[in-house]
Write a protein that binds this DNA or RNA. Structure first.
Length: 111
DNA sequence: TTGATGACATAGC
DNA sequence: CGCTATGCCATCA
């Protein structure tokens, strides 16, 4: 278990209910902006070893592009449980449900 | 260690 | 908005 992996897992667990985060976003918060792929890899691998809220993780477009329809369906269902609206194609309104990680660390530059 | 893989992101057309 | 090409690097065999 590398520090980065542990970090990614921590970040994912930081995702509040009712919101979704993108791989790139998690990767950045984890410290590796280029490791967006590894986030996916970590989910796929670790989610079956740890209890990660992987369902709150989507791609940069907010779509559920998972290969297995079962998993995609599960994610859609879970997101629905969180109160998140999901399109027929498994798309989510990032502008409405994307996680705003300013709570993670007060390093915001909008104000 | 080496080689191959992948639940993605970003840039150009 | 969709397709093509490249980068990036942890995980698995």
């Amino acid at each position: 278990m590398e520090a980065y992996t542990q970090q990614v897992i921590t970040v994912i667990q930081e995702i509040p209910t009712g919101t979704v985060a993108t791989y790139g976003q998690i990767a950045r918060l984890a410290g590796n902006p280029r490791a967006a792929r590894q986030v996916a890899r970590i989910l796929h691998s670790m989610s079956q070893k740890y209890d990660l809220p992987w369902h709150r993780v989507v791609n940069a477009k907010g779509e559920i592009v998972i290969g297995d329809p079962e998993i995609a369906f599960t994610q859609t269902a879970l997101l629905s449980e969180e109160g998140i609206e999901v399109s027929e194609k498994g798309k989510v309104h990032l502008s409405k449900y994307q996680w705003n990680p300013r709570d993670h660390d007060s390093d915001w530059m909008y104000g």
